[in-house]
């Protein structure tokens, strides 16, 4: 069901954990639909993401997308991190099954939420960053029987 890359990131997730006194923390998703992601960012004075950690409650794809997302933003500038879309995360993982695409959206949201938190803490505005939604849509196609 999952690509080798997804399985690799699930089995050996990168950057699991938390950062004390993080520059920004973002938590997205909800337990109701079974996925919660929390991303911690350590951003230096030059706006470079020096370190990133995550904690995720969720399925294999949720763990793998969190792991990949942290890899993709590590060492990047804030503007570069904003370019890490769910599509980029999915591509880096060699794709996800259709029912798991929402996990990659969640990863993108988590990074945005952490950046938003950083911006709020520092009273700055990040170009192109919108206030993140807290919940990922639970909409589901109605099947016909």
């Amino acid at each position: 069901m999952y690509s080798e890359k997804v399985m690799d990131h699930f089995k050996n997730p990168r950057n699991v954990g938390e950062i004390e006194n993080a520059s920004g923390v973002g938590t997205v998703g909800n337990a109701k639909c079974g996925d919660i992601m929390r991303i911690f960012l350590d951003i230096d004075e030059d706006g470079i993401i020096k370190d990133v950690k995550f904690k995720t409650f969720g399925c294999g794809a949720a763990v793998a997308t969190s792991s990949m997302a942290t890899e993709l933003v590590k060492g990047k500038t804030i503007q570069e991190a904003l370019q890490v879309t769910n599509k980029a995360v999915m591509e880096a993982l060699d794709g996800l099954p259709p029912v798991k695409v929402h996990c990659s959206l969640l990863a993108e949201e988590a990074i945005h939420a952490a950046l938003w938190d950083y911006a709020e803490k520092n009273g700055i505005k990040i170009e192109g960053l919108e206030k993140p939604k807290n919940d990922i849509s639970e909409e589901e196609e109605e099947e016909d029987y």
């Binding site: 399985m7 699930f10 089995k11 639909c33 079974g34 996925d35 409650f57 969720g58 399925c59 294999g60 794809a61 949720a62 763990v63 029912v99 798991k100």
Partner: peptide, 23 residues
Amino acid sequence: VEGESLLIMLDMKGICGSSGSAC
């Protein structure tokens, strides 16, 4: 803990079970 993650990790140890998780 989420069920699918648990199942995949059990499978890695050769144990077959099932879950009622959404995934």
